[in-house]
Each structure stands twice: as structure tokens, then as C-alpha cells.
């Protein structure tokens, strides 16, 4: 566990070496808050439903790929992957350390949006159940997307390629869970859209939690897929030796 900590500390600090992380965090917070404020003033409700309905798309398309792209791609490019994988540390621990660092960075950015519930508390009497559920779901969803992102980044040495592919994959997983996208697909191949909506799309699971209904199946869905991608990441790195 100590090994994971060593990797975690270096990796987390590395986010703050370059301005890119700051830029993306600011974009993330401003984009989410302003998208929300538009709804907030229009509807005048003291809840965060519109915030959590746009969040998956912002996370999947932009923010998560932006913070996961460097995890392995940068190491591949600098050649430091050779250093990491010849340190006396298990590959699993390296993957976990890197993953947790990116998760921590995401949580910091997510914490930046907490100004909204504080604002709601001052202006009205919001129902905190769905808000807590929404944040809990956002942590699970972000964690899942990051696991996909770190896995994808191990295959490329160009960060931009990692970003685009992660963005495509996470964007697809998000959109397939939006009611009308599977309907369109069903129009082409009957049943396929429905199938993907139920078994692949993430939005359905996210929406359950975000409504304040914490369904244990959805939690297991996120956690198990996160674990799967981290495992695949470690295996892919080991496999590369051959």
C-alpha cells in the first residue's frame, strides 16, 4: 500500500506542474455552473436536477479524458514507463496509485461546484437527498470514466489521441443512455438500441442514483466496471512485455 502512496503522491503533484490541469478545472467548473445557472434562473427551483443531467456529458466528453490522457501517454512519450515498470513495485500498485491520483484531482474539481448547493441553501430550502445522491453518483461515474481513460491512455504515446478516443468511448456510453439515442438506433436495427440502453449505457445507472434512489445494483455496476478496467490496465501493461 505504501508503494501505491508513493506513486499517488508523485502523480497528484504532477497535475499541478502544468497549467493544463488548472485550465481544465476552471473550464469544468465554469461550464457546469453556467449551464446550471441558465436553468436555475429560468425554472426558479432550488434543486440541482439540471446540473446532474448535463454533468455526465461534460465529464465523458471533455473533463475526464482531459485528466486521464496524460496518465500513461506521457510516460510512454517520455520513456519513463521503462523506469516505472523496472521499479520494485507491482504493476497493479502503480496503476492504482495513478488512478487514485486522477480520482483525487477530479474530486478537487468536483468540490469546486459545491458553491451551488451552498447558494441554494442561502436562497431557498433545497431537498438535500437528491443533491447528495447526485454528488455520490458523480463520484462513481467519474471514477468509472477515469478507469476507462487510464486504460486507453496506456496504448498511446500521444496525449491528444488518448483524449479523443477516451472522449469517444465515454461520450458513446453517456449518449446511449439518453432516451432518444437508443430510440434512433432501434429504428435502424430493432432491439439493438434497447439492448445497449439497458446493458451498456451509464446514464440510466447514474440517473437512478441521482434521483436519490441509491440502487445497490447501480453502485455495483460502477464499482465492478471500474475495477475491471483497472485490472485490464495492469494486464495490458504486463502483456506488453511479450
Amino acid at each position: 500500500m505504501n508503494d501505491t502512496g508513493v506513486i499517488f503522491r508523485r502523480e497528484f503533484r504532477a497535475y499541478f506542474y502544468s497549467p493544463i490541469a488548472y485550465v481544465f478545472s476552471v473550464i469544468f467548473i465554469v461550464l457546469n455552473s453556467s449551464l446550471y445557472m441558465f436553468h436555475f434562473f429560468f425554472m426558479g427551483n432550488a434543486d440541482m436536477r439540471s446540473f446532474f443531467s448535463t454533468l455526465p456529458l461534460v465529464l465523458g466528453l471533455v473533463f475526464i479524458p482531459a485528466i486521464s490522457m496524460r496518465l500513461w501517454s506521457e510516460e510512454n512519450k517520455l520513456g519513463t514507463v521503462e523506469l516505472l515498470l523496472t521499479l520494485p513495485i507491482k504493476t497493479e500498485h502503480i496503476v492504482l496509485g495513478k488512478y487514485l491520483a486522477s480520482l483525487a484531482f477530479y474530486l478537487v474539481a468536483l468540490a469546486g461546484t459545491l458553491t451551488i448547493p451552498v447558494l441554494l441553501l442561502i436562497l431557498g430550502r433545497p431537498d438535500f437527498g437528491p443533491i447528495l445522491g447526485g454528488y455520490f453518483g458523480s463520484v462513481l461515474l467519474g471514477g468509472f470514466f477515469l478507469a476507462i481513460g487510464i486504460f486507453i491512455s496506456s496504448f498511446f504515446s500521444d496525449q491528444i489521441v488518448s483524449l479523443i478516443i477516451t472522449s469517444l468511448v465515454c461520450g458513446f456510453l453517456t449518449l446511449i443512455g439518453w432516451q432518444y439515442v437508443p430510440m434512433v438506433i432501434d429504428g435502424w436495427i430493432p432491439g439493438l438500441g434497447e439492448f445497449m440502453y439497458n446493458y451498456i449505457g451509464v446514464t440510466r445507472h447514474f440517473n437512478d442514483i441521482e434521483r436519490g434512489v441509491i440502487d445497490i445494483r447501480s453502485v455495483i455496476y460502477f464499482l465492478s466496471f471500474t475495477a475491471l478496467f483497472l485490472y485490464l490496465n495492469a494486464k495490458a501493461l504486463e502483456r506488453r512485455k511479450f
Binding site: G79, T80, T86, L87, P88
Partner: peptide, 26 residues
């Protein structure tokens, strides 16, 4: 091991880098 392509993190200070290796090497 000193690989042919020197594995260095350009954004780190030399002292930070060596400290990191020291920690990773227990």
C-alpha cells in the same frame, strides 16, 4: 538501470526526482 532513452520527468526538480526514486526503492 540506465535506459538508452533517459527516463526523466521534465517538470520535476532534480531533488524531487531523486526523492521519488528513493521512496519507490524503499
Amino acid at each position: 538501470y540506465l535506459p538508452e532513452k533517459v527516463p526523466l520527468y521534465d517538470d520535476m526538480l532534480v531533488s524531487e526526482y531523486l526523492t521519488f526514486i528513493g521512496e519507490a526503492r524503499h
